[in-house]
Design a protein around this nucleic acid. Structure first.
Length: 581
RNA sequence: UGGGGCGUCGUCAAGUGGUAAGACACGGGACUUUGGUUCCCGCAUGCGGAGGUUCGAAUCCUCCCGCCCCAGCCA
């Protein structure tokens, strides 16, 4: 039977041999596929699908699903379709389908010519519904939504049959046709599957298959005023496309009997639905509804705000697709609810960026330093390494002169023991330049604020080495004042203050957990001049600070803006924190 | 208390009867012209609990406890 139904799909042959020594971590879905391949369940085919509803932007949770579905297909020499679950036009929009395609491509996956829409199948879906009516497995019900709820029963009590359950096939056919023709009001009638009102699984208590919605659809326009429900449409689409493994999240586990029921009733090819646990990440929210709310209420600048857990947000923030793919692999796939530490994502990010980001010097909180014994008009070009992890990235020249900026945090008037940066009388190395010693601190008389520092340099230490072999513990970054590029930097932190932003007390909402300091904009940061050539999306490591990228929408050559993607690990901050305790 | 799932280190997660992988985090050390990177070392006498089967149990059996999901004409 299974054999026969599967027969119109190409038999194996397009599959690469399974690599038993694959370094990919084992998980239960891989195990199922291996077993199916071994037993020839689908003639050696592996065909998955990624089925987003175009009602919002894709987020990191979707990335897990995308990587799983496309990744499995690739791993086993199969295919993966992109299919929009666009059965509810009231919530969907073309803006979302465009963003979804951009995001999936950016992540590095390709659906080739297999882009589908549930709406592509509206005509067939309708015919399948008619077939169900004809075999007495579906009926038109005139109960109101509220009545349907009452008839459904509760978790512990069985439901009771709708008085319309016994309508004749002829009457059902007629009514359904008229529903389609727009003769009835929205909500007045619904087509239901005739299953079992006493089932302990509420999904089997005569679920709705079609509802009337006189709403314009972003693809089918106004040609339909009835739309199929997810449970009915999804399995049939999977079947029509010859999907072998229909992977979805845990909350659909209870729907599997229904998924199977429709396909069995219709006697069509049956893929298997497999459920895994959706992703949760600390300090972030992955609910489309709540993300939409953040956007609509202006708590963020949009779906692509760099603080958003959307792929568009992460991309704008400077994350790489490679890092996200690696993260998706490393977190594993299982059935238990879990909350992954955001630091794991950051680890994947740094690992990738460390290898590819060009190093550059930038001062975010500038403190002027005048090197008194350095010739007034002299400028030297110091040689700097672009990436110590990748020699092929070469070297560059950075101008040095008498007046420079250093990071305010790199100077302490009264330094603690373990502080080995600049302080009165102390010597430090200016990266790729000279050793300098601080000789004088100039303060504002009234406020006491440090305005500038004066110091001397050792001409013999050019490049950062002292010929007498003396050591300095600290190396700090700097930018020549007269050559500096003035730029704005946006420092981002978690959008929420709680590990689980959705965990709220009585009377509060996730909005109460918003981090008021999630974005700090610093103007007039000083950067080495070579950064003038940076283009939107370009990523850099600002030495000793973190990874940054040129913002897409807001940056311009006249007023460059850099987003902080992620900080570098900072063991000094840990030491300082420990000293305070 | 109907049904469906799930409980292995702080967090993910392997393991499917032969004596608890790995990663992140954390702690310590080495190296360092980024307090970055890299490299070493440490980190579950125990797998939700209690019984039982077995030479041997995270893995099998029994009972119990806890957590998640389902009462949309959402997906």
């Amino acid at each position: 039977m299974e054999e026969r139904k599967n027969s119109h799909y190409p038999a194996g042959g397009n599959n690469a041999p399974v690599d038993e020594n694959s370094s990919a971590p084992p998980h239960f879905i891989r195990a199922i596929i291996r077993e199916d391949l071994r037993t020839g369940k689908y003639q050696g085919r592996v065909h998955t699908r990624f089925p987003p509803e175009p009602n919002g932007y894709l987020h990191i949770g979707h990335a897990k699903s995308i990587c799983l579905n496309f990744g499995l297909a690739k791993e086993f020499g199969g295919k993966c379709n992109l299919r929009y679950d666009d059965t509810n036009p009231a919530k969907e929009d073309v803006e979302y389908v465009e963003s979804i395609e951009e995001d999936v491509r950016w992540l590095g996956f390709d659906w080739q010519d297999r882009k589908f829409y549930a709406s592509d199948y509206f005509e067939q879906l309708y015919r399948f519904a008619v077939a169900l009516i004809e075999k007495g497995a579906a009926y038109v019900c005139d109960l109101t939504a509220e009545q349907v709820r009452e008839y459904r029963g509760t978790l512990t009590e069985p439901g009771k049959n709708s008085p319309y359950r016994t309508r004749s096939v002829q009457e059902n056919l007629d009514l359904f046709r008229r529903m389609k023709n727009g003769e009835f009001e929205e909500g007045s009638r619904v087509l239901r599957a005739k299953i079992d009102m006493t089932s302990p699984n509420l999904n089997m208590r005569d679920p709705a298959i079609y509802r009337i919605k006189k709403v314009h659809h972003h693809r089918s326009g106004d040609s339909w005023c009835i739309y199929p429900m997810y449970d009915f449409a999804h399995g049939i689409c999977d079947s029509l496309e010859g999907i072998t493994h229909s992977i979805c999240t845990l909350e659909f586990e209870d729907h599997r009997p229904l998924y199977d029921w429709f396909l069995q009733q219709l006697d069509i090819y049956r893929p298997q639905q497999i459920e895994f646990a959706r992703l949760n990440v600390t300090y972030t929210l992955l609910s489309k509804r709540k993300l939409l709310q953040l956007v609509n209420e202006g708590h963020v600048s949009g779906w692509d705000d760099p603080r958003m857990p959307t792929l568009a947000g992460y991309r704008r923030r400077g994350y790489t697709a490679e890092a996200i793919r690696n993260f998706a692999e490393i977190i594993g796939v299982a059935k238990r609810d879990s909350m992954v530490d955001h630091q794991l994502l950051e680890y994947c990010l740094r690992e990738d960026l460390n290898k590819r980001a060009q190093r550059v010097m930038a001062v975010l909180n500038p403190l002027k330093v005048v090197i008194d014994n350095y010739p007034e008009d002299q400028v030297e070009e110091m040689e700097a390494i672009n990436n110590p992890e990748d020699e092929s990235m070469g070297k560059r020249k950075v101008p040095f002169s008498r007046v420079i900026y250093i990071e305010r945090d790199d100077f302490r008037e009264d330094p603690p023991k373990q502080f080995h940066r600049l302080a009165p009388g102390r010597e430090v190395r200016l990266r790729y330049a000279y050793f300098i010693t601080c000789t004088r601190v100039v303060k504002d008389e009234k406020s006491g604020e440090i305005i500038e520092l004066h110091g001397t340099y050792d001409p013999a230490s050019r490049g950062g080495w002292a010929p007498d072999g003396r050591k300095v513990k600290g190396t700090i970054h700097w930018v020549s004042a007269q050559h500096a590029l003035d730029a704005t930097v946006r420092l981002y932190e978690y959008l929420f203050t709680k590990e689980d932003p959705g965990d709220t007390e009585e009377g509060r909402t996730f909005l109460d957990n918003l981090n008021a300091n999630s974005m700090l904009e610093r103007r007039h940061c000083k950067m080495e001049p070579g950064l003038k050539a940076a283009k939107p999306g370009d990523r850099f490591q600002f030495e000793r600070l973190g990874y940054f990228c040129v913002d897409g929408p807001d940056s311009s050559p006249e007023a460059p803006i850099f987003n902080r993607t992620v900080t570098l690990r900072d063991s000094w901050a840990k030491i300082e924190k420990k000293m305070q305790e």
